[in-house]
Design a protein around this nucleic acid. Structure first.
Lengths: 206, 206
DNA sequence: TGTTCTACTTACTGGTCGTTCAGTAGACTA
DNA sequence: TAGTCTACTGAACGACCAGTAAGTAGAACA
């Protein structure tokens, strides 16, 4: 939503200078965190990328960890929202699973840098651990759908349910490492392909 | 191969103290890099984990980047070796693809921390960029097998070849994020499951 | 015109970073 | 016994780290 360039603020002091809002600061911070890793990204390079001074950032956020917390909350909120929609709560389990997977791909594409940051967490601080816990809850909800679909006989049961879920997420989450919006593949096509490969495999139809 | 604990060296000075060899230093460095990220891992915590001083590490390696280079070379050499074996060069394309994927899973499991480090690279230094280039060459070789199998009609051609390869690697590479050797799933079973899901999908057989 | 508010600025603090260097304990060799 | 080698130790280096303190330009409001 927000751009890389400073956003024009409504009640801005200083004439020639355009003010940054929180959203613009967050976007640039998340990009930098993804480039170098959160811990290795200094407030100094963040300020450089914003074209301001280090201390200017502290006007918008209380510190480096606050930036991380805000960014992760955005990614997690979007993912959790998918689970609350009708398609995720009504109908056969395998349809609900497909709906959630498609929703996850949509969120991945829409908030790519934010989800990328989330998926690269290692859990070294309290903020990271709390985000990982929320992510695990999301994973568990999908794992429950996998279990249901297995019980219904629509998903193969010869492979361990945990392994199934993890391979599924492995495939979906890898999207953040290579997909770039605006390329030849539309988000809709991407979601179709992911679901098709996941359910029917790569071998030619028998 | 080497352990976390100091290895007894042959021509060691100092009585009560056991010497570290390069392999032991590398193992601990790779573990630390995976925990915190390469850039964010200080030589100080490395020394702490080794139970020595910072400067002792410089006896074994020329610097922090040297540790990274050695670790990445190990992971890449193992992966590249798979492509040279008979199973990867002889027979139908889809069999060769299966052989390489199985080999990649084996390497992932055998050298898990080293491959984990490789898969988390962002390309911020020259060492990282060179390693990423070697990894891309490996990926390209597998992509060529995918192309061949598609031409043979053994792999579905309705999905873009690049996307196919990337989803395939996404699934396989995710293994480093959750698989831990010694658990309930044997490496052989893991490789079977991965290949089965990749080729036949998760839906019950039609 | 004077006050208040926003959105910064420059200058700084104590601490940590990767790396270097000079020195040395103990085993081995001549 | 003297000299050489391995495998370190501890102190120090300048650069950079996250965060703070104090000041201020300009717009809005009274």
């Amino acid at each position: 939503m927000a751009q890389t360039a400073p956003a024009r603020s409504t009640g801005n002091g200083r004439t020639g200078r355009e003010a940054y809002d929180l959203s613009a600061v967050l976007n640039i911070a998340v990009a930098a965190f993804n480039d170098h890793g959160y811990e290795a990204t200094s407030m100094g390079v963040l300020a450089q990328r914003l074209g301001t001074s280090k201390s200017a950032i502290y006007y918008h956020v209380s510190g480096k960890e606050d930036l991380l917390r805000l960014a992760l909350d955005r990614a997690l909120s979007e993912l959790e929202l998918v689970l609350t929609r009708d398609g995720a709560t009504q109908g056969p389990a395998d349809d609900r699973l497909r709906f959630v997977l498609r929703g996850a791909v949509d969120v991945l594409v829409k908030d790519l840098p934010y989800v990328t940051l989330l998926l690269r967490l290692r859990g070294n601080t309290e903020v990271e651990r709390q985000a990982l816990a929320r992510r695990r809850d999301f994973d568990r909800a999908v794992a429950a759908l996998v279990d249901e679909a297995r019980a219904d006989g629509t998903l193969r049961a010869d492979i361990d349910a945990r392994t199934t879920t993890r391979l599924l997420f492995g495939m979906i989450n890898s999207i953040v490492e290579w997909y770039r919006p605006g390329g030849p593949i539309t988000p809709e096509r991407l979601a179709d392909d992911v679901i098709s490969v996941a359910f029917d495999g790569l071998a030619t139809s028998r």
